[in-house]
Design a protein around this nucleic acid. Structure first.
Lengths: 202, 202
DNA sequence: CGGACCATGTAAGCGGTTACATGATTCT
DNA sequence: AGAATCATGTAACCGCTTACATGGTCCG
């Protein structure tokens, strides 16, 4: 149950509505942790029931209503508990590498298309993370800016350093994927003249 | 639904029982794709119902029974279709990087412990993949050996090259994770003397 | 005779996705 | 007036995990 902890993490920056979470914060956290809207609202109610956050009804416009949630002390404690715990490591499940292991079954062009999609995907990811890193120390209206406003100045460098560190890790991983896909294209070119596997199945 | 395609991939090597799949093959594919036993048997029955594999009842010992499944032509076609399709790219969801982004909330020692676990996990993975690569061209009793026995000699190099390529990709990724965690330990050391966040919440 | 391994499942539940659904408000 | 954005959900389903469960066989 990590959606809960991702949300708690966001709430340590400032109180928020479900919409805020979906739009602004998950719109940037999205590149580390994605969650669908339909998942967020029910989870918020469960979290309120568990006493981790408390909701306050606020008027929105002239007749609408919105619920502003604030993290409680229990919520902070739970978040800290999670932060101090060592996360377990699960089993691998990677479609893309699984598929690559059987490329002899694909048309060379299909395998190339897959690898090119891989490269496009990871290039796009890298670009987004780089933008995120660029905006880290920038405007005070940003998520990080609002987070910093709650912390003493002496902590700012540290807070920013860890965000940057996390994003750089994602970039490094995607960079490895880029190189892997590029070397895959070369490998296919080497083997492409070979007969298609249709010819030898049974 | 990728378990199905992982299983089809395994069936292209040779007919197998559910047990075979769980033990031998997933025991090595495990490092690319993990599946629990409890998931495999029901899926096999669904796949048989869908006509992708066909089961044959065989005596096991003197009274027991086992079902040997063989991939059908439809199964091969479906596998090939999947191989020629470009897989979609989903959203990121990475607990470890999420957590790293909030390390200012963890005790320095807890953050260190997490990163050390990260390094141990990925070191272990790398070792296993390297062993797998080492055994690729080796004995004919191995999964790859049995796969090669069905393919013409001219294809062998290609088949092995793709397996090796897939595993090397996993290794490269884990290597990136190792370096990331190591630089994280250095980062924590730089910031560790700072006050713990308890002191500045609210 | 006991322990490792062969062989096969069921049931409950969880976390997440997809599709569907509604209506107000603010901006142009 | 129409589009974008604010704001909030429900329902069905899916793939997977965890725990539980059974009984045979082979080897020392």
């Amino acid at each position: 149950m990590s959606l809960r902890h991702a949300l708690l993490a966001l709430f340590t920056a400032r109180p928020m509505t479900g919409y805020d979470l979906n739009k602004q914060f998950l719109g940037s956290t999205d590149y580390v942790w994605h969650a669908a809207d339909s998942q967020v609202y029910p989870e918020l109610r469960r979290m309120e029931a568990a006493g981790l956050i408390s909701g306050e009804q606020l008027p929105s416009g002239s007749s609408g209503d919105k619920t502003l949630y604030t993290i409680t002390e229990d919520g902070v404690a739970e978040f800290r508990r999670w932060m101090n715990e060592v996360l377990p490591y699960g089993k691998v499940r990677d479609q893309y590498h699984l598929k690559a292991a059987y490329f002899e079954w694909a048309e060379p062009d299909a395998a190339r298309a897959q690898l090119r999609a891989h490269m496009e995907h990871h290039s796009a990811q890298i670009e987004r993370w780089q933008q995120l890193i660029g905006s880290l120390s920038a405007d005070p209206g940003s998520p990080v800016g609002q987070r910093l406003a709650r912390a003493p100045t002496g902590e700012h460098a540290r807070i920013i350093a860890y965000k940057r560190y996390a994003y750089e890790g994602m970039i490094a991983r995607s960079q490895a994927e880029l190189e892997w896909a590029a070397s895959g294209l070369r490998l296919i070119d080497e083997h492409a003249p070979a007969a298609r596997p249709e010819s030898h199945w049974r």
